[in-house]
Computed example of a mutant assay.
Amino acid sequence: MRYLLLALLITSTSLAADPWRVVGDEQFAPYSFVTAEDDTPRGLDVELVDAVLREAKVNYDIRLYPWERVKRMLDRGEVQMAFQFAGTPLRQQQYELVGPLRSGSTVFMTTAKTALSDWKSLDDLSPYVIGQVRGYAYEGNFDRADLARDTTAQNPRQLVSMLLAGRIDIIVGDRVQLQYFVREQRAQEQVRILPRPLIQMPRFVAFAKGDSERARQFSEALVRLRKNATLGKIEQRWTH
């Protein structure tokens, strides 16, 4: 029993002393991004994660990278935590997901060149080429559907540019984010969002499978900040 307690103490001390390496997507504005001036992480999700980690009283370092690299770093054990993952069954199998950190509406955006006014089933999308970001998970049925897809976009900003250039018919993504990049290009009058969303998608932070102690620490701090409205105030600053 004494050895077990000692082992638990050593593990707890190690977790507290070693800074958590935390990574997120560098091209996920307004949720996480870096500017041309410096590589300081910014965005709604960055602020949410920062608040929770401070509440958990752990040492940490947040950095942003391309999404494919984020996943590789977590898979290889090079980092302790990553964000912002969709809560799909596949992601739940791969990682210890904690959250949701927040939730967002996943929608389809198109232009006047596409006659589609709305959709009832995924078959309604079959005549069109749908652009999506390589490596992103959206929604289980959509991800498995036999649809014409263009996955050459490396990030959502590029996806919006491809739509505006007429290279693809429809794009899929987070409503707030797609609108952010459309405003960035002053193209609000050129696009429209189909009324029916694909899904209301919760976004999670991820730890390596089996890393239950760090997951517990983050989860408990997240619950506390959600209850006292701290996270809600941060979200309001970015979305209103």
Rank of each mutant, 00 (worst) to 15 (best):
Q92W: 07
Q92M: 09
Q93K: 09
Q93V: 03
Q94C: 10
Y95D: 10
E96Y: 13
E96W: 06
E96T: 02
E96S: 02
L97H: 02
L97T: 06
L97R: 08
L97Y: 08
L97F: 01
P100E: 14
P100C: 13
P100L: 07
L101Q: 03
L101G: 11
S103L: 09
S103E: 10
S103M: 09
S105F: 00
S105M: 06
V107E: 01
F108C: 03
M109N: 13
M109A: 15
M109L: 10
T110G: 01
T110D: 07
T110M: 01
T111P: 09
T111H: 15
A112I: 06
K113F: 02
K113W: 06
K113G: 01
K113V: 00
T114C: 01
T114S: 06
T114I: 08
A115V: 00
A115E: 07
L116E: 04
L116I: 09
S117E: 14
D118F: 03
W119K: 02
K120Y: 10
S121W: 08
L122R: 12
L122H: 11
D123H: 12
S126R: 14
P127A: 05
P127V: 06
Y128M: 02
Y128C: 05
Y128F: 10
V129S: 06
V129Q: 11
I130E: 03
I130H: 03
G131S: 12
Q132R: 13
Q132P: 01
Q132C: 04
V133A: 13
V133D: 09
V133W: 03
R134D: 14
R134T: 05
Y136D: 03
A137W: 12
A137D: 06
Y138K: 07
E139W: 03
E139L: 09
G140H: 15
G140R: 15
G140Y: 13
N141M: 12
N141Y: 15
N141C: 03
F142L: 04
D143T: 11
R144D: 05
R144C: 06
D146P: 02
L147A: 02
L147Q: 13
R149Y: 14
T151Q: 15
T151H: 11
T152R: 05
T152C: 09
A153R: 10
Q154W: 12
N155V: 02
N155P: 09
P156M: 11
P156L: 15
R157K: 09
R157F: 10
Q158G: 00
Q158E: 10
L159A: 10
L159G: 07
V160N: 03
V160W: 07
V160Q: 11
M162R: 11
M162D: 05
M162A: 14
L163C: 09
L163Y: 01
L164G: 04
L164F: 15
A165I: 02
A165W: 06
A165Q: 03
G166D: 12
G166A: 07
R167I: 01
R167W: 00
R167N: 00
I168V: 15
D169K: 05
I170G: 10
I171C: 01
I171N: 00
V172F: 06
V172D: 02
V172H: 02
G173Q: 01
G173F: 04
D174P: 09
D174S: 13
D174M: 14
R175P: 00
V176F: 08
V176I: 13
V176C: 00
V176R: 13
Q177F: 01
